[in-house]
Amino acid sequence: MAHQAITPAGSAHDEHEHHETPVVFGFWIYLMTDCVLFGTLFAVFAVMRNQFAGGPTGKELFDLQGVGLETLILLLSSITFGFGALSAQAKKHGLFIFWLAVTFLLGLSFVGMEIREFSHMVAEGNGPDRSAFLSAFFTLVSTHGLHVTCGLIWIAVVALQSFGSQAWTPRFMSKLTCLSLFWHFLDIVWICVFTFVYLMSVI
């Protein structure tokens, strides 16, 4: 096939082909289980959304402009990561590091905004212990935030590894593919968070 004409060590890549594809598929299966995990947390939130226990409602607590900015930041980080993945495919190291750094900074500012929002709420006495609604809210949104934090660590690790001798090998590329699936998946979860948690609580 075409790949044997393009890659010099065609047979070596064939070897990898059979090892690497299951890695990405296995990671895909992990993401699906993660999807079910978030599904249960959304279900809990849906049940608890009106259990305010006399505490503040979402309408009083949520700042839609902040949420809109967080959404924009995460969406931007999705395409900057996509550009990074394309740079890796083209083996353009400088461009790859640039896009990964931009993605990392966007992700970091997202987590920073979330931590600021949470600490602000806790400082006003509206922490997870205030009502069932807030317990469900903090559990769901901070689980997403923790995933983003893990994604940030992973981005840093992959960026560092790209300086090593393993860069651009099929093994490295399949790791990068897994990370890109993970990062885009988190953006999909955030769509559901801003719609079903923030926007619906404010209506």
Binding site: M1, A2, H3, I6, T7, H13, D14, H16, E17, E20, T21, V24, F25, W28, I79, G82, F83, A85, L86, A88, Q89, A90, P170, M173, S174, T177, C178, S180, L181, H184
Partner: peptide
């Protein structure tokens, strides 16, 4: 992207037909 694509062998989600335009 063809070179990478063929090295990986298959159209796994997360790679394959990606381009700046589609993003």
């Amino acid at each position: 992207s063809n070179a990478h694509h063929s090295a990986m062998g298959h159209d796994e989600p997360g790679e394959g037909h990606a381009s700046y335009g589609s993003y």
